[in-house]
Design a protein around this nucleic acid. Sequence first.
DNA 1: AAACCGGTCAACCGCTCCGCC
DNA 2: TGGCGGAGCGGTTGACCGGTT
Length: 323
Amino acid sequence: MGRPPCCDEIGVKKGPWTPEEDVKLVDYISKHGQGNWRTLPKHAGLNRCGKSCRLRWTNYLRPDIKRGKFTEEEERMIINLHSVLGNKWSKMAAHLPGRTDNEIKNFWNTHIRKKLLQMGIDPETHRPRTDLNHLMSLSELLGIATNLGNLMGPWGNPLGLQADVTQLAKLQQLQTLLQILNNNSVVNMNNPWLLGNNTLALNPIEAFLSKTNTPHLQNPGLFPQAQGDFSQDISKSWTDIEGGSHAEALGFNNSSSTSQETHNENTLPALVSSSTGANTFNQMDTCKQAQMSSQSPSSTIFEAWEKLLDDEESGSYWKEILE
DNA sequence: AAACCGGTCAACCGCTCCGCC
DNA sequence: TGGCGGAGCGGTTGACCGGTT
C-alpha cells in the first residue's frame, strides 16, 4: 500500500507556470524560505503540488541561476564530469555554479551527445564508437578503398578517381586502429597489442603505430600534418587516461593500479566503466574534486579526437569517414 | 502561406534515497 | 528494525519555436 503521489490531488494545476504563480512562489520563499515543499503551495496560495513548486524554484526562479548559452569551458567540464560521473546530473550541477541539473541534462542530450557521436565517440562510454552498424559501414568503406588501392597501384590513378595514396594510407591506419580498439583479448601471435619486439603496446595508438607500415610514418616529413599530430595527441591522451586509471588522468593521484599493471592485464579498459556511478563517484568524493575544474583541456581523448577531425588537411576526410 | 520537421527546454512522472519516529 | 513521508534524481514528454519545403 503505497503513498499516493502528491500530484494526484484533484484540481491541482499542471503545465506551464504563469507569471502570477512565479511571483507568488518567489514572494513566499523570499519571506519564509523553502521549508516544507509539500505544504508550501497551500501557504503560498498556489494551486500546485509541492514537487512542481520545488522544480520551478530550483530550475527557474532561484536567484543564482545563470542564464544563457554554455561556454566552451563549461562544455569541456561537462564532458569531463560525465566521463567520471555518468548521468549524475545533479552532481555535475554542483560543479557548475548557476547551472541546474535539468539544464545540464538538456544540454548534454541536445548538444554534446550529438557532437560526440559525430566525432565517432560513444557518449555513454567515452570511447571511440564500436557499435556494429558504425563499424559495418566503416568496413564497407575500407573494403572499397582497399580494392581501389589495388587497382591503382603506387604510381598513379589510371581510373581517374580522386582517392590518392595519402588517403589510402589513412584508411589503412584507420582499419588497423579499429581492429585494435575492437580486440580486447590477447591470446596469440596475431594479438594486435603485440609489438614487433614481442612486448605489448601500452595503448591502442602505440599498437596502431607499430602495425601501420606506411611511408609517412617512418618519414613524417613526407606528410607533415597527415599523421603526426593525430597519433601524438591521441597517443598522449590515451596514455594519460590509461596511466593508472582515468581518475588519474582527471587529476586524481590515488589510483590503485599503475599504468604498468594496466599494461600487463592485456586488456583495453574503458575510459569509463559501465557502472559509472558508484565506484568512480566515491573515488571522486574522497579525492580531489576541485581538480576536476582545472583539468587541462588537452587531457581528454575527445579533444585529441576532435583535433584530428578539425585538422585542416585531414579534417573533412575523417569526418566523412566517421559520420 | 501553410505544412512539415527538427531542436530546445520546461515540466512531469516514477522511482530511490534518507531522515525520523 | 522497519515503516512512513519528504526530498531529490534521472528519464521522458510535450509545447513551442525557427527553419525548410
